[in-house]
């Protein structure tokens, strides 16, 4: 049942690179990652691919297939017509390390700027009580496998590299929303979301939601509600006054 497919794979490093052509066997039921592994085992031992679980659970093997950001382990070969070449390139938004592997430290650096979960003082482990419907909202965001496809796709970063200093991207802002909706968290991160993580750069085009392999409704369920909360905070005069008083007390 196998057939010979032609692949064009980007080979190179941060200095330079180009598409290179390969002809490779493809068998029934295979995904892109299987085929790249075959090239790696039989033709080019040093073909750089980042991967781990090959089951859509770890979010390591993100790349762009025919220009579309995807997890290579969940991209079935049977969605491509036989005979047409398939082009695989690294994530465009992040600097290339080698071949299909990019340097994604941006995402980890930005994650450190989100203040951590803080439970109420005096609440002891084992005493936590939360209802399923209350945890369900944050649980949706915790399905995130950190594949960074949303970060790669968000045009506020993808097309504007200079925004990266001031905008943390959908994955990181979704983490803020997740903590914000955690029934027992006590920290107010709205100011951080706006001033440091750049929430206003998001103009809700939903590109992030479209590429999410976990089908998380990033824009509708995380980013828009977070924007609404930030707006409430900014334009409610009582809250505004309160925030000024807290700042004077040396909260920052």
């Amino acid at each position: 049942m196998g057939y010979q497919a032609s692949f064009r794979i980007w080979r190179g490093d941060k200095g330079d690179g180009s598409l290179k052509d390969y002809t490779v066997e493809v068998n029934d039921g295979e995904v892109i990652l299987d085929v790249l592994h075959r090239i790696q085992a039989e033709q080019e031992n040093d073909l750089a691919i980042r991967w781990n679980c090959k089951a859509g659970k770890c979010g390591s093997c993100s790349a762009e297939v025919n220009g579309k950001p995807r997890l290579m382990c969940l991209t079935r070969m049977n969605i491509f017509p036989e005979g047409e070449p398939i082009t695989v390139t690294p994530l465009r938004t992040f600097p290339v390390i080698r071949d299909l592997v990019t340097d994604v430290h941006f995402n980890y650096d930005k994650a450190r700027e989100v203040p951590a979960f803080q439970p109420p003082e005096g609440l002891k482990p084992g005493e936590y009580r939360m209802q399923q419907e209350d945890v369900a909202r944050s649980q949706e965001f915790r399905k995130c496998i950190e594949c960074f496809l949303c970060q790669n796709t968000c045009h506020a970063i993808r097309d504007h590299e200079d925004n990266m200093a001031n905008f943390a991207g959908p994955r990181v802002l979704m983490r803020v929303a997740e903590l914000d909706m955690h029934p027992l968290d006590t920290v107010d991160r709205r100011k951080q979301a706006q001033d440091v993580l750049g929430l206003s750069y998001c103009n809700i085009t939903k590109c992030c939601t479209e590429v999410c392999p976990e089908h998380i409704k990033i824009t509708d369920n995380a980013l828009i509600p977070l924007k609404e909360r930030v707006v409430d905070d900014k334009y409610d005069p009582v809250r505004w006054l309160g925030s000024k008083i807290r700042v004077r007390k040396g909260d920052e």
Binding site: D13, Q40, E44, N45, D46, L47, A48, R98, V101
Partner: peptide, 12 residues
Amino acid sequence: KTGGGRSYNPGW
């Protein structure tokens, strides 16, 4: 035997 260089070389 490993082809290629030392940067991200899965064969190595």
